[in-house]
């Protein structure tokens, strides 16, 4: 048993460590380290902006996505849900850059500024909410009719069924949606710079414009590390949120 866990750890850790080594090597090789040290104040400002972009849009996407997905499964919404789903799917199919451009172009029409962090957040949110809505809806719909009937027949209220039965059983599917959304947000966040949303995209695009690999790496490497960090955090929280009875992976770490 312990050897299996050890083997599993090694299998998971080795690729991660190798990737990090490679990234850090690139980082130092192109002199990004020096550039960052020299501009440490700006670095912190950018990284905080970046975190704000990712965390706030992610947070809103989860709250709104799960709520909307859940509402769509309610009986009274039966007719509306295919419509909402279609809208949501279209949103997701628009390319990241397109979403930003739309936010830039559309928001001024309703009297909001198209430039700055708020439009970037709105764009990221709209782009990322789709997989969560879709997976929440599909996850709850996939809970067996028998399970719901048993719960109803035993005298559970609608609310109890939702929170104790439907959502926990849909959790692996919802978690899958959250992972997809995170990937989308983390991947799109650097583009926020293009509409003045700030974040590490500033250094990446500056580096590209100046053909300076050092500056580019100073932005790109933290972006990659942040992506890995978020993925790791999601994995850990899934362990707490997804019951062992509905988890699909076989190997579990004691």
């Amino acid at each position: 048993m312990t050897t299996r866990i050890l083997f599993h750890l090694i299998k998971r850790l080795v690729p991660v460590l190798l990737t990090i080594c490679f990234i850090v090597w690139l980082y130092t090789f192109y002199g990004a380290w020096d550039y960052t040290i020299k501009n440490i104040a700006e670095f912190f400002k950018l990284i905080i902006e970046h975190f704000i972009l990712v965390i706030i849009s992610m947070f809103c996407a989860v709250i709104v996505g799960v709520t909307l997905g859940t509402i769509m499964t309610r009986k009274s919404m039966e007719k509306m849900s295919p419509v909402i789903m279609a809208v949501v799917n279209v949103w997701q199919s628009v390319p990241s850059l397109g979403v930003l451009a739309l936010a830039y172009g559309f928001l001024p029409l309703i009297g909001l500024s198209g430039i700055g962090m708020v439009p970037a957040l709105i764009a990221l949110f709209f782009h990322a909410v789709a997989p969560i809505v879709r997976n929440t809806y599909a996850g709850i719909k996939s809970v067996s009719k028998d399970v719901i009937e048993a719960a109803t027949g035993m005298g559970m209220t609608k609310k109890q069924i939702l929170f104790q039965i439907e959502l926990p059983n849909a959790m692996p599917v919802i978690a899958g949606g959250v992972r997809t959304s995170t990937a989308i947000i983390v991947g799109t966040a650097p583009l926020a710079f293009l509409i003045g949303g700030g974040g590490l995209g500033f250094w990446i695009f500056t580096g590209i414009a100046l053909v300076d690999m050092g500056i580019m790496m100073a932005g790109a490497v933290p972006v990659a590390l942040i992506a890995m960090l978020f993925d790791y955090c999601l994995g850990v929280s899934e362990k707490f949120l997804v019951s062992r009875g509905v988890r699909t992976d076989e190997i579990e770490l004691a």
């Binding site: 067996s144 399970v147 009937e149 048993a150 719960a151 005298g155």
Partner: peptide
Amino acid sequence: NTIELRRSIGYVIQNIGLFPNMT
């Protein structure tokens, strides 16, 4: 009251319907 009525009646369905997320 429907909820109270149901809680006072044991119910076994054909397809068992155990809650997969619970022990």
